Simulated assay, not measured.
Amino acid sequence: MGRGLRASWARDVAAGERMGMWNGDALDLDAYLARIGIGRDARELRPDLPTLYEVQRAHTAAIPFESLDVLLGRPVELEIKALEAKLVHGRRGGYCYEQNSLLAAALERIGFEVTGRGARNRTRADAVTPVTHAVLVVTVDGEPWLCDAGFGYQGPREPVPLGRPGAEVPQGPWTFAVHEEEQGILVLRIRRDDAWRDLYSFSPQRYLPVDYVVLNHYSSSHPRSAFIGKTVVQLPGDAVRTTLVDRELMRLYPDGRTEREPVAPDGLIALLDREFGLRLPERDAAELVRIHRSEY
Rank of each mutant, 00 (worst) to 15 (best):
V128N: 05
L268K: 05
G184R: 04
D141S: 03
P170I: 10
G93P: 00
L29F: 07
D211N: 15
V88T: 14
K230Y: 06
P159R: 10
I291K: 14
D69P: 09
G150D: 08
G267V: 00
W174F: 00
A85I: 01
L71V: 07
Y53T: 15
T258I: 07
P47F: 02
H59M: 02
E84D: 01
R109H: 14
P236I: 05
E287W: 06
P254L: 02
A134Y: 10
T139K: 15
Q154C: 10
A42F: 01
A34W: 09
G2V: 03
H89A: 09
Y97S: 13
K81G: 14
G111M: 15
A61M: 03
E275N: 03
R92E: 01
N100E: 12
I190P: 01
V128C: 11
N23C: 12
V169R: 01
E44S: 14
E295W: 09
Y32T: 09
P165N: 04
Y253A: 02
Q183W: 12
V138Y: 13
R251S: 02
L252S: 12
E181F: 07
T175M: 13
T175L: 14
A31V: 15
M19T: 13
E248K: 13
E66R: 12
A82E: 01
E181Q: 14
A177P: 11
T231E: 11
L186N: 08
